[in-house]
Design a protein around this nucleic acid. Structure first.
Lengths: 268, 268
DNA sequence: TTGCTCCTCACGTCACGTGAGGTGGC
DNA sequence: TTGCTCCTCACGTCACGTGAGGTGGC
C-alpha cells in the first residue's frame, strides 16, 4: 500500500509539516514522488521506520542523531552504547532542573512564611519555644550582618526552616566590636564547617513587630523598653531581631514594607 | 563609575555578545551611548540589575519573563506567585526527563544482561533456581506470544529483572490452541490487573542456547530431546524458551543473531 | 465554479555565537 | 603602521509552525 502524505500523517500521528521536514532533512524519504505534481507517497513499510523514529525521539535524540542511529545500527545492543552517553546528558538535565526547582522553592518558601505571621504591631508578651539553629557569632558592626547571612545561607541552604535572625549580646547599643550572632532556624541538625549548630532555649519575651526600614528600629526598641520598664521586669541578653521580611534574595524590596520582630527576653 | 562593555563583561561574567543582545531586547540598557563611536557605557548601579537578571535566568525564566518581572515586581513576595507557575513547568520537565531516563535504561538493561550470559551452544544440564515472575497464560498459536509480551511489559514495565520467556504446557508441538504462558522475571512482587504474579519452582533441566531465527528452533529442540532420551531421563512440562536476545524494543535486529535458551525440565 | 489535497517558498522562534568588514585612539 | 577595543550587519542554530500563493482533479 502507498499512502498520500495526508493519509500517512493520520496513520503515524505526525503532522504533515513534520513529515515534510523529515523529508527535507533526509530522515524519512518518501517511497515515490509524483513527476507531475510533486506529491509525496509513502509505503506501508515506512511505518516501522516511523515507529523507530518516534521511539528514539522519546529518548531525546536529535534528528541528526536518529539519522545516524538508523544508518549505523540494526540492533538494540548496538545502540545501547550510544544511549549510555545520552543517559548521562539526560541525568544532567534532571539534576539541573532539580537545582532550578530548589532555587524557586527557596523563594516561595519565604513568601509562605510571611503570610503565616500575624501582623499585630503592639508590644506582646510571648512564651518563645526552644529552637534548633545554625549560627555564626562574631564581633563587628551591625552592617556586617548581611555578609554573614550570605555565608550561613550558602552553607545551611536547604535545611533552613524559617526567617533568619540575629542575637545581640551587648547590654546596650555598641558602635564597633558589637557581639553579634547571626542565626537561621533548621529543620534538622547539620554538621558543616564554618557554622555552629545548636538548640536555643526558649523563655518569656516581650516582642514587637517593626514595620519599615532598619534605620527606624530605634522607635520600636523604645516601645519595648518602655513597656518592660513599666512592668518592672528584668531584661536578659541576648535580644533577638527576626528578619521576617527584609531585602529578598532577588529584589531588595521597599524598606517601608520590611517586617522585623524584636524579642527581648525577661526573667520569669 | 562607568564601564566600557569589555570591562562590564569582565565584571559581570556576561559575554559581550550577550550584553549587546540584552541591549537589543531592552532587558539591560546602557547608561550612555557615545555619540561619535556608538560605544556603550554601563554604570555601577546596573550591576545589581545584572545580579537579578542572572538569578532569574537561573530559575529558567525567559528574557521576556525577566523583563516583565523587573517591570512589575520590586519584592520577592510579589514574584513568588509568578514563580509558582514556573515551578510547575520545571517539575513537569523533570518528570518528562525522568520518563526519558527510564526509557533509555530499559534498553541498556537488556544489553547488559546479554553480556552476562555465557555462550556455550552445547546441551547442558543445569540446576535452575526458583524465580519470581509475572505471567499471562492463554490458549492460541505461537505467533500470539509477541502481543502478550507487549501487554505484560506495559503492565510490569519497571519491575522486570531479566529476559522474558514463555512456557509450553503441551507434551508436543500443537498447531492451534497451544497452552502457553508468557512470563517476565520480576525484581519484587507486584499486584496489577491482567497479570498473575507467582514464584516458579526450580529443578533440574537440560538446556541449550539456540542461535538464529525462531524458524530453526526445531534443530535445537532435536539436540535436546536426543540427549534426554539418550540419558534415559523423563521430561516434565512445561518447557521454557528464554528469549535472551530477540527482536529489540527499537530495532528488530538480525534474526541470525537471536539467542534463545531452551529448557526442558526432567525428573530427578 | 467551489472545495479539497497537495505543493513550494519565506519567515518566525530563542538566546545568543560566529564571522565579516569597518572605525578611532594610542 | 600595528594592535586593541569597540561598532553594525548578516547568518546560523533546532524542529518545526504559520501563512501566502498556487496547482490539479473531482
Amino acid at each position: 500500500m502507498e499512502y498520500s502524505i495526508g493519509d500517512f500523517s493520520r496513520i503515524t500521528r505526525l503532522s504533515i509539516k513534520t513529515i515534510r521536514y523529515y523529508h527535507e532533512t533526509g530522515l524519512l524519504l518518501p517511497t515515490r514522488i509524483d513527476n507531475d505534481n510533486s506529491y509525496r507517497f509513502y509505503s506501508e513499510k515506512l511505518l516501522d521506520r516511523v515507529r523507530i523514529i518516534k521511539k528514539l525521539k522519546n529518548m531525546d535524540l536529535s534528528i541528526e542523531q536518529i539519522k545516524e542511529a538508523l544508518e549505523n545500527y540494526t540492533d538494540d545492543t548496538d545502540i545501547a552504547v550510544f544511549l549510555e552517553t545520552k543517559l548521562i546528558e539526560v541525568k544532567n538535565k534532571i539534576d539541573n532542573y532539580k537545582r532550578v526547582q530548589r532555587e524557586i522553592e527557596s523563594i516561595i518558601k519565604f513568601k509562605n512564611q510571611i503570610k503565616m505571621n500575624n501582623l499585630n504591631h503592639d508590644v506582646q508578651i510571648k512564651q518563645i519555644d526552644e529552637i534548633l539553629i545554625a549560627s555564626i557569632r562574631f564581633k563587628g558592626i551591625y552592617s556586617d550582618v548581611g555578609s554573614y547571612f550570605g555565608k550561613i545561607f550558602r552553607i545551611a541552604g536547604r535545611n533552613v526552616s524559617g526567617a533568619p535572625f540575629s542575637m545581640y549580646y551587648d547590654e546596650g547599643f555598641v558602635e564597633e566590636h558589637a557581639d553579634i550572632e547571626v542565626c537561621v532556624p533548621l529543620k534538622k541538625e547539620i554538621m558543616k564547617e564554618g557554622i555552629e549548630c545548636k538548640t536555643l532555649p526558649g523563655g518569656k519575651a516581650y516582642t514587637i513587630i517593626h514595620k519599615g526600614s532598619y534605620d527606624t528600629l530605634g522607635e520600636s526598641y523604645k516601645k519595648l523598653t518602655d513597656k518592660i520598664n513599666n512592668d518592672g521586669v528584668k531584661m536578659k541578653t541576648p535580644s533577638r531581631e527576626i528578619y521576617i521580611k527584609g531585602p529578598g534574595m532577588i529584589f531588595k524590596g521597599n524598606p517601608n514594607n520590611y517586617l522585623t520582630e524584636l524579642q527581648i527576653f525577661v526573667e520569669e
